[in-house]
Amino acid sequence: MSATAEPLLKLDGVQTYYGSIQALKGISIEVHEGEIVTLIGANGAGKSTTLRSINGLNHPRHGTIRFRGRDITQTAAHDVVRMGIAQSPEGRKLFPRMTVVENLEMGAFQRKDRHALPEDMERVFTLFPRLAERRNQKAGTMSGGEQQMCAIGRALMARPTLLMLDEPSMGLAPIFVQRIFDTIVEVNKQGTSILLVEQNALMALEVANRGYVLETGKVAMADDAKALAQNDDVKRTYLGEI
């Protein structure tokens, strides 16, 4: 990895609770500048909760989260977005009655440089030509794959330094899954670091630089993506090979 002094994002012993239920039992992960990092694991392992801890929707009770050298452990969700972390949430969560363009505009809500929006919107439309065709369609009436494109495009409209994607392949046809992952690589090449949460471990490890395996709120394994894909335990549990 590049020799930057501090990682872009660093979680240290993060413990997050839903009420009295402890969902994260001390998560420590890092994302470096320019990387794609993936979190894989079974349902309930704490993948989405990790993202919610980072973006300020569920503040951790213990541990610290640092982003570009600043402590964001208790930072409010809207300030986290302003600092450069955007997310495409699980289940896409588009504004179904707004058009594609309106959804994309909402993604840029925190940005002050309004004049640069058309340019960024063009960039999203270049990444997803399908969205350009549907720019005035209500988001709720599009197919799952198109909605996922819109959700990723909406997150990109915030011009994030770090893009967090929660289950981008969920419920999509295989052809769309391939296209979404191609786009993730493309976005990363353009200079955005990516934290990718996926159940589709095979695809995720293929595009990622490094990966973390979460099990019941803890990091069970951390390694290069290639090495993880070759690991027997990972193969057995997450890649469906025996």
Partner: peptide
Amino acid sequence: EDETAAAAMGIPL
């Protein structure tokens, strides 16, 4: 329309 999505977009609820 969607409070969670609004929060994720950086809208201060």
